[in-house]
């Protein structure tokens, strides 16, 4: 795209493979994400979307291939054919710049909402506690939960927990946000509040990769949509193209199945 000239790739994935035993979950994925870009990944379950996301911050160790953040390889460096594992501290430092939001929230149950958000800055960035808590309060306010600062996660709804989780990721001032089916575990009536927060972030220019089953949301928010199947990128392009005029049969079949289901759900709701 011509308006991409001069925008640098924030994330570059080259020849990514991931095998679990004999099961090949990712079969050669190449991908570049520009700074400020909003990318959605759709596809049937088992297509490798989540694994791809988890490889980016090295929660999953790729079997082969390379992932570069700001031109810096994450997880391991290569000298010739040898792969040298990165030191734990360096890996942690790189992960700190990549925010991740999980399907199951994974809030820390022994900490209040405020401390869930502040713990990263306190422990990782070594910020003074007062300052970290002040900024955490502002972030909880931003996701509409200023009144829940002192509440433990088990007293929050799923939607509220996920918003705290987003604030927790933002507290590290990430350059890239990864959303792994952030609304899939939520009751339908709680999905909206989380999507609203993500939309707000997108409007601020945050670079984000979103794995989602919310097709309408993906269409609205993305600069680019990727359709994955069987561990490969089948098709990608601007949302109107993927959703309105997909080139590949597999994409069409998937969209028909999903959209039928969502229309059905809407009609019976």
């Amino acid at each position: 795209m011509p308006d991409d000239v001069g925008r640098r790739p924030l994330l570059r994935i080259v020849g990514l493979h991931k095998r679990f035993g004999t099961l090949e979950v990712l079969r050669g994925v190449d991908l570049q994400v520009l700074a400020g870009e909003k990318l959605s990944i759709i596809g049937p379950s088992g297509s490798g979307k989540t694994t791809l996301l988890r490889c980016i911050n090295w929660l999953e160790r790729p079997s082969d291939g390379e992932i570069l953040i700001d031109d810096q390889p994450i997880g391991e460096t290569r000298s010739g054919d040898r792969r040298v594992e990165m030191r734990d501290v360096e890996l942690a430092r790189m992960r700190a710049r990549i925010g991740m939001v999980f399907q199951r929230f994974n809030l820390f149950p022994h900490l209040t909402a405020l401390d869930n958000v502040a713990i990263g800055p306190i422990k990782v960035l070594r910020q003074p506690k007062q300052e970290a808590r002040r900024e955490a309060r502002a972030l909880l306010d931003k996701v509409g939960l200023a009144h829940k600062c002192d509440v433990y996660p088990d007293m929050l709804s799923g939607g509220q927990q996920q918003r705290v989780a987003i604030a927790r990721a933002l507290a590290m001032q990430p350059t890239l946000m990864l959303f792994d089916e952030a609304t899939s575990a939520l009751d339908p009536e709680l999905v909206g509040e989380v999507l609203t927060v993500i939309r707000g972030l997108a409007a601020e220019g945050m670079t984000m990769i979103i794995v989602t089953h919310e097709m309408q949301f993906a269409e609205d928010i993305s600069d680019r949509v990727i359709f994955m199947d069987h561990g490969q990128i089948v098709e990608q392009g601007p949302p109107h193209q993927i959703f309105r005029a997909p080139a590949e049969t597999r994409t069409r079949e998937f969209l028909r199945a999903v959209i039928d289901r969502q229309v059905y759900a809407a009609e019976t709701a």
């Binding site: 734990d88 992960r95 925010g99 820390f108 022994h110 990782v124 927790r168 990721a169 507290a171």
Partner: peptide, 29 residues
């Protein structure tokens, strides 16, 4: 749950920090 450790790693904690700050306090209970 494994997700606790992963969430801790994802915000940039080292393995040792994740264990000390997130996993152990819950394991004590």
């Amino acid at each position: 749950h494994r997700g606790q450790n992963e969430a801790a790693l994802a915000i940039g904690m080292t393995r040792a920090q994740a264990l000390r700050v997130i996993v152990l306090p819950q394991a004590v209970r």
